[in-house]
Nucleic acid binder design. Structure first.
Lengths: 227, 227
DNA sequence: GTCTATAGAAGGATAGAC
DNA sequence: GTCTATCCTTCTATAGAC
């Protein structure tokens, strides 16, 4: 805010946002108390209410932070590892899979988490949540456009990206509810099947389908999801 | 509980469950206060804690109630109106669509609502939520099996039902976050497209594709979601 | 800018009369 | 079984010293 702010100022603010982010992710917004945030951040109430007008204001900062984190946290790690534009999509989905596994199926998509909890009751948060979704959709649609040559002509990449987000969010929800990765893997398998068909119908068949195919498939008997 | 319970006993208990159900649906579990439930039900704290050990215990009763309501509330109204087994699936999806529209996109699937809010923090609730999902999946899979003749041989109906649930839950979440029916309609359109292809690949092509096709499509330019 | 202390409201749950 | 009254905790937010 002030023009010559010290380092520590930004540090404290950042620490609050980051701590709140982690707690909201793990327990949700309402279930996370301000006291808990302060304790974990090693700060006191005075600091929080110096930077933020309210707990909800802190939530908005967290959601803004997520918009900034889309690139560095969700996209870049995948894009560095994978160059094929279709496989990059599955790499992104694999990121959420890893998150589910690492947290024993307690955490999936941070935004989806907050979306259902707050959409009805917190209009300001709902707006930034929607912006996060839109950012994700646009990034994925851009990625898909790089594979446009291999995909059927006339395919709407924006619609396909929305479809991917819808499926991913639903799959994360079910994985958490069942405390099992199975519903998530089933959704990805369905999607893989869908893409296989898209690619075999593509106008320019020159580019061969990448071999990374079987990578992420589990050993389950899910092979019979054919069309 | 007691063997010769009066009518009013069951009435009070039911009223508590039903009132809590509506409030949990609209505002979520944590955001709904016990006092609010009591006020809306026209009862006092003594009554609630006579029948339920805690607020969470009441939640479990609500979730059990939802399991009983799957038939009468979700399936039967659709099955009475629609006889074609494939169209029945889309009829069920249309039910959730209607719920979104009626509530100005505030309410979608009651179970999905509670799933993300409580899966991490309330193990007992999570279990009954998963049971609700399983009930839905089984019912829809049974419905799909009636259309087995028209669908490709070897298609796994249980997997397909899971796919439908995943997509529906994701679509409801996005519709709520965007306060718009568009993401929901887009998901259903994608699904319709998917089924069209399934049906045209079916082993027994004798049964003609029902004409109800264009019914639920909005006037949006979503026709280009082809494959 | 950060601290301690605390206000003030709302939360879930209980006690005991009827 | 239902009522009223209330306990105790937790919550967000504020006041004022440093």
């Amino acid at each position: 805010m002030c023009h010559f702010s010290r380092n520590t100022t930004q540090d404290t603010r950042d620490r609050l946002i980051e701590t709140a982010r982690q707690l909201f992710l793990k327990k949700g917004y309402t279930a996370t108390g301000v006291a808990e945030i302060l304790q974990k951040a090693g700060l006191n109430a005075g600091s929080l209410y110096h930077f933020f007008a309210s707990k909800e204001d802190l939530l908005l900062a967290v959601l803004e932070r997520y918009k900034e984190l889309l690139g560095p946290l969700v996209l870049q790690p995948v894009y560095e590892r994978i160059s094929d534009s279709v496989e990059r999509v599955f790499g992104i989905l694999d990121g959420y899979r890893g998150m589910l596994l690492e947290t024993d199926h307690e955490q999936g998509c941070p935004i989806g988490n907050l979306a259902l909890e707050l959409s009805t009751t917190h209009p300001a948060a709902r707006k930034v949540i929607a912006e996060n979704f839109t950012g994700w959709r646009n990034a994925v649609a851009d990625g898909l456009r790089e594979a446009a040559g291999r995909l059927p002509a006339g395919l709407d990449m924006d619609q396909l990206a929305l479809f991917l987000l819808t499926l991913m969010e639903g799959a994360v929800m079910l994985a958490r509810a069942y405390r099992s990765i199975e519903p998530y893997d089933a959704a990805v398998a369905q999607l893989r099947d869908y893409f296989d068909r898209l690619l075999s119908n593509g106008t320019s068949r020159s580019t061969p389908r990448p071999a990374a195919r079987a990578n992420r498939q589990k050993k389950r008997g899910r092979r019979n999801v054919r069309v």
